[in-house]
Structures are given as structure tokens and as C-alpha cells.
Amino acid sequence: MIRIDGSKGEGGGQVLRTSLALSLVTGTPFQVVNIRAGRSKPGLLRQHLTAVKAAAAVGDAELEGAELHSKELTFRPRSLKCGEYHFAVGTAGSATLVLQTVLPALLSASGPSTLVLEGGTHNPAAPPFDFLAKAYLPLVRRMGPVVEATLDRPGFFPAGGGKFRVSVQPAPLKPLHLLERGNVVRRQATAMFSQVPFDVAKRELETVGRRLGWSEAERRVEELKRAPGPGNVLSLEVESEHVTEVFTAFGERGVRAEDVAAAAAEEARVYLEAGVPVGEHLCDQLMLLLALARGGSFRTLPLDGHAQTQIETFAHFLDVKVAVHEVSTQARDVQIKG
């Protein structure tokens, strides 16, 4: 039984989600203590508990400690099962994080799977649906499996109520090497809003134009009429020859639209100036895929705490070596060998 201290590294839910994913793939039971000890509300919240139960369903697992606010969990997978699944967070908690918990296992299952996920689809501190569909899943497909995602309706914090569907055709993961971005072929800034003034989206896009020099043709407004509650998200999509990256910022009550846009624009600017193909958030997810493929490499920005936490969690479950080399002050090469 592997024992993991959830307070190590970034101290959030990532240790739990990655451990669940790797436990399913390897069939290795584990116990995690001090769950989310680094957060203001430690222990399992609704979205984390949904991820745990989703992993248990996919892996026919035995559970101990799977309760709200629990700080310890024991997870014993028995057999990996493909099939049709429906997971609902029940709050505005991130449904995309639930998907990223079970998807690595379903990529190697014995047959295809379909999933319906409900909850938050566009959440701060979680990958929004647009990131999954445009940045992450295209790389999954390049590695072998065929995964498609369709958004039925968006769900913003605090109302939630979003819904999306995912189809998975499993295949062995092939190593991927992504060291060059290539030329930027398309840029698109999209200010999405639901039940908030149009002026908010307009000001966000004007700020993107000023800060990044993106033309009017590269900026668009999208009103989301199917969302159950109010919300606003600014998405900056950078499509290059070899990869697409997506940067997002979320409108909040009391935060100026210009400040929301400035945060997303700054993240995109740093990425573009560094000349790397893989951004900060995609780094964590791609690293997990390459670890499961037992090989690959990519160039990215200097690693943050989330990436370091991923590397430390891999060591519990996988015999892979992760090497990080400094290319410049703005770039790092990550190499994974199994």
C-alpha cells in the first residue's frame, strides 16, 4: 500500500487526482493523508469527492474515507472498466477536473467509453472546457487514442449546471516530442458572457487589443444563452503550426473588466515571448500523458509548483525518469523516459 502525504508540493487537489489516475492505470492501491492541507478549506470538497467516486466506478475500487471534508482516503482498484458513465458534481465545482481524473485510465481500457459530466465547465483554478477541447485533447489524439468532447451547456461559478459529453476510443499512448511551436497561424480572443452587461465583454476585448496588438478581426464576443447562471470568461487562443494554447481569465464581482483582460493578456504575452510550444497549465497535463507513454519531451516555461508536484507523484506509481534542462531564462526542456 502506497502512502502519500497530500500536504507536500502545492498542497491542493492535484496530488489526489494524479494519484487516482495512476492508481487506476497501474492497479496500485494507495492511501493519501492530509488531503488539500494547503488550502483554506482542507479535505475533500464536492468536486474532489465526485472525482474519487468517478475513479472508483471506473476502477471498481474499494474506498475508505470517501466523505465530504475527509482528510484521508484509501483507494483499492480491482479492475478497469470501459463503458457509459454519468458523473455530476452537484455544485459549480469543476467537472473538467473530474474528467482529467478518469480519462488517463480510459485511454488504456479494453474498449470505448462515453461520459456525460455535469457541474462547472468554466471555473477559476481549473481547466475550462475550451482548453480541453482546443489544447489538451488534440495532443491526446496525436498520441494515439481518439477523444472527442462536446459542450451541451456552459456552467459558471457559482451557479454551475454545465454539461458536456466525451467519447473515448482507447489506444496505446505513443511518445510525443514537442520542442518547437512553429509559426503562429491564428489568434483569437473570445469574450464569453451570460447574464452580464455586454459592455464587460467589449472592454475586455479592447484591453486585449491594446496590450497584445490583436486586430478587431481577432476579437469576438459570444453570448452564452444556455448557461444556468451569470458568468464571464475571456479566452485567448494561440494556434501555431505544432500546437494550440489557450489562456483564460474569469470575470469576478468587484473586478474591473480591464483587469480580467490584463491577466489573460499577460499570460499570453509571456508565452509568446518565450517561444515555447507548451504553456504553464498544459505542461502538467502533458507530463502525465508522457509518463504513461513511458517517453517523450517538450519545451515549456520554467516549471511551477504544480509541475513539481506531478513529478513527485509519478515516483510513487511509475518507474519513469523526468529530466528538466534549462534552455534559457524563459524556457525549459522536459524529457521523460521509462
Rank of each mutant, 00 (worst) to 15 (best):
G155W: 07
L63T: 03
P172E: 08
E252C: 09
K53V: 07
A21I: 02
P77N: 04
A265E: 01
T96A: 05
F317G: 00
D304E: 13
N183S: 13
P29K: 03
A171Y: 05
V322E: 02
F157M: 13
H177P: 00
K337L: 14
V327S: 10
L44V: 04
S7G: 14
P77W: 00
A217G: 15
L99K: 06
T190P: 08
P127R: 05
A227D: 08
A57G: 12
G229T: 02
G279P: 02
A54C: 05
G155Y: 08
D130I: 14
A21R: 00
N232D: 06
H177V: 09
F298R: 01
V89Q: 08
R141P: 05
K71G: 14
Q31H: 13
A331P: 10
N183A: 14
L49C: 00
Q308L: 15
L106R: 05
E239C: 04
V320W: 02
E72P: 02
K81P: 05
G162N: 09
S23I: 00
A265L: 01
Q335A: 13
Q195A: 12
L68F: 06
F198Q: 14
T26H: 01
G229S: 03
P230K: 08
S240P: 00
L49G: 02
H86V: 15
K225D: 10
V166N: 12
S79C: 07
V221W: 07
G144Y: 07
V208K: 00
L16H: 00
P302N: 11
T309W: 06
H316S: 04
E84V: 14
A323K: 15
A291Q: 02
L106A: 07
L115S: 13
I336D: 03
F157P: 07
K163G: 09
R203S: 13
G160C: 04
A268V: 08
G12C: 10
G6C: 04
S328M: 06
R153C: 12
E241A: 13
F75C: 05
Y136Q: 09
E118F: 10
L45H: 12
A227E: 08
S113D: 08
G38F: 04
L288W: 00
P277M: 07
L68M: 08
V184Y: 05
A264V: 01
G338N: 06
V102L: 11
K337D: 14
R142C: 10
K8T: 15
L289C: 12
P112T: 11
R46N: 11
A109Y: 08
L292Y: 05
F129I: 13
S70Y: 05
R211G: 03
A264G: 00
L224Y: 10
Q285W: 08
E67P: 00
G65F: 01
V116E: 15
L117D: 09
M143S: 12
R256V: 15
R220G: 15
K71N: 12
F193V: 09
P302W: 11
Y136S: 08
G11W: 07
V58L: 07
G43E: 02
